[in-house]
Simulated assay, not measured.
Amino acid sequence: MQTQPLLRQTKPMNTPVIDQTKLESFVMRAIGDLSASSGGILISLGHKLGLYKALAGAGPLTSQELADRASCAERYVREWLNGQVAGGYVQYHAVSSTYELTPEQAMVLADEDSPVFIPHAWSVQASMWFDEDKAAHAFRSGKGVGWGEHHDRLYCGVAAFYRNAYKGSLVAQWLPALEGVVEKLEAGIEVADVGCGHGHSTLLMARAFPKSRFHGYDVHQPSIQEARGLAAEDGLEGNAEFEVARATDYPDRKYGLICFFDCLHDMGDPVAAAQYAAKVLSPDGTVLLVEPFANDRTEDNISPVARLYYTGSTMLCCPHAVSEGGHMVLGAQAGEARLAEVFRKAGFSHFRCAVKTPFNLVLEARR
């Protein structure tokens, strides 16, 4: 008498049926993500070694020509170039065995003043890997990780990445979208930049509006020191100053404008921060709130940008908010409705979205 194979006898009744096509599709998606993340180190190296800058505007170059321009070893440069071609970051001309950076690629990879310059962002990703054990401990314990506890690559990466985005939009688009704010800045008002980091946003405004006085506040002492140095380099010490302070205890100067640039969602008590802003705001003052773009529902936040923001939120934003007590941990994908509720609770009667981009929500609040 024949018996069934042992595997069939012991196979669980609820074993799922695997759709091979779906499996292969998902595996290739995961491999694509792995490929993209591994390419990040080559992008960072290309920036630090000056390879992108040496390619930009030079026309087709051989690997040896690029190596000579960047003072690097040809064999390494050739492998790096082929990796860039494989990822679509550099063009390859097979007939001449040469490599070329298009003007569009140069804007993203070689022009450090471009609003879409990306290499600095990879320092942020690197810092997250360095801090993986801290994140795992936070997950298990429920405790926070303060901003100052992260790897050093985080601070320069964040500051440099946001500097270019703000440089392209803050003075030219975001401030003019607020009701009457540019006119007040031109006449001269006190401005608070809360959570200013290295002070790039503060200094951009100080340069554009010399009659106003700008005050940058942050809890991270090394960032404030860096901001002071940048202000001195730019000759802006006359109308820009920086102090270590929290979002609930910076000096009361009856500000005509209070700014929160990509930071309110990091705070342990955003309602308290908004309440304090209401307290130190002049009667006709405005709050400018810039936050990562997000829709209000999870099912509407399915995109590469949302995934990027959720990652940063998991590793950086939520841990810092928890470290500050975690009264309301908004996360980087809070959305307009939740942010409006924060300001409603803080006593503001006016709240609107002034500008919406694929990357930012620019919001205006008044008492």
Rank of each mutant, 00 (worst) to 15 (best):
H93Q: 14
D269H: 06
P176K: 04
L281A: 06
Q221C: 07
K345W: 13
P358L: 11
L170E: 02
C263Q: 11
P60H: 09
Y92L: 01
R153T: 10
S282G: 05
I41Q: 08
V85A: 11
M1C: 04
F130R: 12
N295S: 01
V85C: 09
A278G: 15
G146K: 11
D111V: 09
Y162T: 15
R367Q: 08
V27F: 12
A332Y: 01
A332H: 03
S123W: 13
R69A: 15
A354C: 08
A273S: 13
G88R: 03
F242R: 06
F348M: 12
E65K: 12
C72S: 13
S37V: 13
Q9A: 06
L308H: 14
E324A: 10
G168R: 03
P210T: 00
N301R: 11
G235L: 02
A340S: 07
L170V: 04
Y310L: 14
D284F: 05
P176E: 04
K184R: 14
T3M: 13
C196K: 07
R140L: 10
R78G: 10
Q84H: 03
G46R: 06
E132F: 11
T102C: 06
H327T: 15
A208H: 03
N82K: 09
D218G: 00
A206R: 00
D300N: 13
S313Q: 05
G57F: 09
K143A: 14
L203K: 03
G148W: 07
P103F: 07
G148T: 08
G39D: 11
C263S: 14
F343I: 06
L154E: 04
G331R: 06
K48H: 13
A121T: 06
A36T: 07
R366E: 03
L6T: 04
V145L: 11
K48G: 10
L264F: 02
E100L: 00
A365E: 08
D300W: 03
A208C: 01
R338Q: 15
G331F: 04
A272T: 04
Y255W: 09
L203A: 11
L236D: 06
I302S: 07
A247C: 01
L363P: 01
A294I: 10
L34K: 11
F242E: 03
H120P: 03
A67V: 03
F242T: 00
K345M: 14
S114E: 02
R366G: 01
T298V: 15
H200S: 12
T62R: 06
L264D: 00
G325W: 09
R163P: 05
V17T: 13
L7R: 14
E104G: 06
T98C: 07
T311N: 12
Y310N: 13
G168W: 02
N239E: 10
P222G: 05
L175C: 04
C156Q: 11
A121Q: 11
